[in-house]
Write a protein that binds this DNA or RNA. Structure first.
Length: 291
DNA sequence: CACCAGGACGGCG
DNA sequence: CGCCGTCATGGT
């Protein structure tokens, strides 16, 4: 049983963990010093304040070295976010539009999340509110995932592709409240279970090939595919266009007039290049924060 | 209490 | 291709 405490660099923890990219983190400790608990890859992670910075505690059946490696990967600690942020906010339009994100700390990061959970999460996200997405994913985990052996904690890992492939639609719809997305969830889980090694070794694939493969799965359209590429397959150049990003790009760069999604994506790739994914997250969180 | 949500899908012109 | 109605559900 390994037990590690790892110091995190300076960044906007709350927006990163509770914003629109991850759905399995919660703020804990009422009126205490803020801390967060999340479930990632069947592990319970806690982020808490200690001596002027945030640290992550992980307590699970890995060695300390494995725990550290896992945390480094999940929080993308090997990427230079200072440089990426500086490059992006050199653009006065982005700097101004997203200024609310940089009042205290250094803005949000992009988490490197597990690909299957990310896939199902963003299928669920379609035409849905974030609080409801969180509820649905919690019940899906409780219903189909493995209980994390930890007293009576009530914490469950997100289900594997095989576990969700065996789900019946009435349970997904009636108990998990997925609505019409039940068939998309089960059938995409089946497809990913049947081709598990293909998806599990997707680091070998180009972003274009991976995007094409994702778009063949039920419930995955252009926007959801882009989210899975960015958050689940760590493609930093991916640029999801949803209602908030649409509004943000329109207001910040086109004087408020409506722009076709294709033109928005072209603009983003051209304007933000390899940092488009992070730029997208700035635009999304800033637009959502201002309402 | 209508409205809308990190849209996708199928049918139509 | 592009456009448009439809799709469950519940948070605000």
């Amino acid at each position: 049983m390994g037990q590690s405490t790892i110091l995190l660099p300076r960044f906007d923890i709350e927006t990163t963990l509770l914003g629109g990219q991850a759905f399995r983190w919660e703020k804990i400790g009422e009126n205490q010093i803020t801390s967060f608990q999340g479930i990632v890859s069947g592990r319970i992670l806690q982020v808490r304040w200690e001596d002027g910075g945030y640290v992550v505690d992980c307590d699970f059946t890995d060695t300390n070295a494995e725990s550290a490696q896992f945390i480094r990967g999940y929080f993308d600690l090997d990427r230079d976010y200072g440089s990426a942020r500086n490059a992006l906010i050199a653009d006065p339009m982005l700097r101004h539009f997203a200024s609310s994100l940089f009042e205290d700390w250094d803005g949000p990061r992009i988490l490197r999340q597990p690909w299957f959970e990310t896939t199902i999460s963003f299928i669920v996200s379609a035409n849905n509110h974030i609080p409801r997405i969180r509820n649905i994913l919690r019940v899906i985990s409780r219903t189909f995932g493995k209980k994390i052996s930890n007293e009576a904690s009530g914490d469950y890992a997100f289900p594997t592709p095989e576990q969700l492939a065996g789900a019946d639609l009435s349970t997904l719809r009636g108990e998990c409240n997925t609505g019409y997305r039940d068939i998309f969830i089960r059938d995409t889980a089946r497809r990913m279970a049947d081709a598990f090694s293909y998806w599990n070794e997707a680091t070998l694939l180009s972003t274009d090939e991976l995007r094409t493969a994702l778009l063949e799965l039920p419930g995955i359209g252009p926007k959801v595919a882009e989210c899975i590429l960015l958050f689940g397959f760590h493609r930093f150049e991916a640029f999801p266009v949803d209602t908030w990003v649409r509004k943000a790009v329109s207001e910040a760069y086109f004087g408020g007039r409506t722009i076709p999604d294709g033109e928005i994506r072209h603009f983003a790739a051209d304007h933000f290049g390899p940092n488009a994914g992070l730029a997208q997250q700035y635009l999304f969180e800033a637009a959502r924060k201002r309402g």
